[in-house]
Design a binder for these strands. Structure first.
Length: 408
DNA sequence: TCTGGGGTCCTAGGACCC
DNA sequence: TCTGGGGTCCTAGGACCC
């Protein structure tokens, strides 16, 4: 008999910070999102009084009063430690699905294997984990919560009676795949616990909620509806977006931000070895501002052919964004999505672009990717709309002193 | 003053075809 | 006067995840 296990790193971003600052193991710690906007990771003791995703400005005083150490996020560090954790797990199992930066599903036969994995990950990376084991992914999630709550590290949830008794006390919205909206609808339908949800009829679930919640309910009954995906499909698209440090009201600034995001997204797909055939831009106002109606616009279009060439993508992004931009509107955020990705190798030669021009473009992009201080002037020099935090981490694009001059 | 960013999957509805 | 029905593809939007 084989089981599904979920390995989940405990307070992952916090643990990453602690690995490099061991004195923090004894302190309560939170990690903030970009722009120091939200609390995105909390040490165990902080979870009791700070909700996940809490806006930092609302909790700043409380955090200070409680003596909580506050860290800005360092995604490069987290993603590097994540790779190490995943490599460690991979070395101890054959069937692994990396589900997120801090979680992995795997197949195993015995609880001892999980205990060994947990020990090895801690020993090799310094990151503590919790492991839930059950018949399928959804129940492994439930088991994982139990392991976390009890602090025991590993929880095997197989016995039917035991499963039922846990589901009886589990609120519907805490089930993996059931969020706030579905939770509200389920409660209206008379299911407020996982057990009540599991016992709803299939036709009712399918008819009023759709196939995903139905699959979730089937898993709670012990069936398998979500397979272990060891070889995930390539990404559908990449997005670069960010909130502004202050409201943006002029097209000149918006244009710079759009260009910057198009450039960042382009760099990502080049790094992945793919090219885009479809581009989307979006502009948003601040949805929390009660004085103004929320304004959110999207525009998209096909590219003339698969490309990863920054200037072509920037031009397309700007031309799509321009008609969306209204004067007298304060924008909060914008972004660029590149989709319809195809592997670079299989892209056919475009007969209308001569070879030497293509080679020049490739050289220019290679140069751009090698040298972080290089950027296109269309992305702006001053960037008054950028978040303040970003200025501290990279000066290359924000100070004249770091500018390079090159001739092409 | 200050509320993240990057993804996935599903559904509904329109366009188009026969 | 009467205005089909089924399939496919595309896109926008909703809901969820971490």
């Amino acid at each position: 008999m084989s089981y599904i296990a979920l390995v989940d790193c405990n307070s992952f971003f916090v643990s990453c910070e602690r690995v490099f600052r061991p004195e923090l193991w004894k302190r309560p710690v939170v990690v903030l999102s970009n722009n120091d906007g939200c609390v995105v990771a909390r040490s165990r003791d902080v979870k009791k009084f700070i909700p996940m995703g809490a806006p930092y400005f609302k909790y700043k005083e409380l955090l200070d009063r409680m003596g909580v150490v506050v860290c800005s996020s360092n995604y490069e560090l987290y993603s590097d430690l994540s790779s190490r954790v995943m490599e460690t797990i991979a070395s101890l199992t054959d069937a692994l699905e990396i589900y997120s930066i801090d979680e992995a599903f795997l197949r195993l036969d015995r609880e001892e294997e999980a205990i060994a994995i947990r020990k090895k990950v801690l020993q090799w990376t310094g990151i503590p984990t919790s492991i839930g084991i059950a018949k399928n992914k959804t129940l492994a999630k439930v088991a994982n919560h139990i392991a976390k709550d009890k602090g025991s590290g590993v929880k095997m949830l197989i016995d039917k009676e035991e499963i039922s008794s846990h589901l009886k006390t589990l609120p519907v919205e805490e089930i993996w795949g059931i969020g706030r909206r579905l939770g509200t609808r389920l409660r209206a339908l008379g299911a407020s616990t996982a057990l009540e949800f599991r016992e709803m009829s299939e036709t009712k679930l399918r008819g009023s909620l759709g196939v995903v919640p139905l699959r979730t309910a089937l898993e709670l009954r012990g069936e398998t509806a979500f397979e272990l995906e060891e070889h995930p499909e390539p990404k559908q698209g990449v997005v670069s977006s960010r909130s502004f440090g202050r409201p943006v009201t002029t097209w000149e600034e918006m244009e710079e931000a759009i260009a910057l995001h198009a450039g960042k997204a382009a760099a990502k797909i080049r790094d992945d070895g793919s090219q885009a055939t479809y581009l989307q831009v979006f502009l948003l106002t601040n949805r929390f501002n009660p004085l103004e109606a929320t304004y959110s616009r999207v525009a998209s279009g096909a590219l003339p052919g698969p490309t990863d060439f920054t200037p072509a993508l920037v031009q397309k992004a700007k031309s799509l964004a321009k008609p969306l931009f209204y004067k007298n509107v304060s924008y909060k955020k914008c972004g660029v999505f590149l989709g319809g990705l195809v592997p670079r190798k299989t892209v056919q030669e475009d007969l209308f672009i001569d070879r030497s021009r293509r080679e020049k473009e490739e050289k220019l992009m290679a140069l751009l990717d090698e040298e972080p201080r290089l950027f296109f002037l269309s992305e702006g020099i001053k960037r008054g709309w950028k978040m303040k935090r970003d200025h501290t981490s990279s000066q290359y694009t924000t100070s004249w002193d770091y500018l390079l001059t090159i001739k092409i």
